[in-house]
Amino acid sequence: MSFKNYMKDHCYTFLFILVAVTASEIFLLTCKMHWVIRIYFALAIILACIAGFLMDYFKRRKFYNKVLNDLDKLDQKYLIHEMIARPDFFDGVILKEILDEVNKSMVEQVNLYKLQQEEYKEYIELWIHEIKIPIATSKMIIENHKNEVTQSIDEEMDKIENFIEQALYYARSNHVEKDYIIKKCHLQEIVSEVLKKNKNSLIKEKIKIELHDLDIDVYTDFKWCQFILNQIIQNSIKYSQKENKEIEIYANTYKDNVVLYLKDNGIGIKSSEITRVFEKGFTGSNGRNANQKSTGIGLYLCKKLCEKLGMNIKIQSKNENGCIVMIVFPKDSRIELL
């Protein structure tokens, strides 16, 4: 709050004071008053006004400077109204009341959306649990009536199951509260579960599996990690070459982390696109041409879930020479003391 702006704001008041002083001087002149009295009179009025304005100016300056300063330091700017002490001048009080009112209304509005989002997430989770029952039943029927037709339906059921799982984790990933448990998991066990889950398509596509160096413990949520690996294996299946398909899975322990490598010899990712594969909704040129269209959600979710679990995911590809996905599990030597 600069003095210049304050003066500008009060220019009419100054003008009126000047007019009043001039008018009274003219009056005193016509009354033939002594010049000392005239100057004393004029000075008294002007000095009183200046004192009044200065007091008002410093009071306001102190108040607004504090507000601006606090606002600057605040992380969540909307909380500023909580920081303002009740001002002792009228328009300041109005400002504070407006801010309080606005904030209250905003909080109500935000809570409404929060509630709606929460309800929607709950509905999605409920729906997912409901839909799993008919899927389980269908799978049992298929198992009890094995033939070529049901086998083919079984593959489609697997796809449905995968899409549903994606939706479930999408709903979970947008949520702030933790619904996962970090505990000691054996890498071999996680990888085996994922391979078993995809056995139908892996066997059908004649993909050779090479596993080594997986006898390592990591700290993560088993289910979430399984979901992440599942997305990557499915990509490897989706973008495989025509012949000699192979997926190699191995891990390596470093000083501060454990890295799980999933290496395939599929069609790979174009170098111009590799930086964007974790973006939501991004489908590369390969994704648009594959038999099964890419949704651009899988890797985006992987990245998001990895971040929540404190893990990292990286991808490397040499044009048309397959790709390597690296999942980095943090390792803290202190954890082993527990």
Binding site: I128, H129, E130, K132, I133, I135, A136, S138, K139, M157, E161, L168, D179, Y180, I181, K183, D221, F222, K223
Partner: peptide, 23 residues
């Protein structure tokens, strides 16, 4: 059909011998 570690843990704590998720 509830697929998360927390439910699994709860069931095991209540004394289940094992736990399978649908499907």
């Amino acid at each position: 059909s509830r697929d998360n570690e927390i439910d699994e843990l709860l069931s095991m704590n209540y004394g289940a011998d094992d736990y399978v998720t649908k499907p």
